[in-house]
Amino acid sequence: MIGIVDYGMGNLHSVSKALERLELEYILTDDIEQLKKTDGLLLPGVGAFPDAMKTLNEMGLTDFLHEWADSGKPLLGICLGMQLLFDESDEHGQTEGLKLLPGRVERFVGHTANGEMYKVPHMGWNKLTFHKPEHKLLQDVEEGHVYFVHSYVVKHQEEDVLLASSEYDVTVPAVVGQKNVMGTQFHPEKSSHVGMSILRNFGELVTQGGESRE
């Protein structure tokens, strides 16, 4: 059973529909007691980092997510949900994140070193480059295109955490993971067959019980 953390941010409908298509059982709730009973967590998210952290803190979900991460059970953040896993973000000032993964979230600069402008948000289909194709999340997944929509990007992450990336002026960490804590910057639920295979792999990880952080 997968628990989708409903903290009021994001398009929960498309995530849950994607799980239904894959015939993965899930519950969508903000109730910590119910989430505790699940075997894997999905942390979705669309919107602003500070609002999201504020909500997680107020709902007691921050502490819960830390306990969860320590338990070794799988956790997958999607889009903003992935960014929240990192140390901090500079979105509308400095905000501390969940600090489950090392790195910080910064806005796309919007122009190259040569002063050439590029569009922000990074919106559309971009190609993945796998750095750790052997990772369980990426097994039997095509190194293809996935759908991104974001204006902020993870930087200064540890090399070790980067499972896949895409190129958009800067290198965009696209899939990250350290033990049981994982994330995708793109929307797997909107990324056609490539995204669906990643979600299917997450479903398998959940069934297998994840990997302890200790």
Binding site: R21, Y147, S192
Partner: peptide
């Protein structure tokens, strides 16, 4: 449509 489509 949202239930069947895996593109935006």
């Amino acid at each position: 449509v949202a239930g069947t489509l895996a593109i935006p």
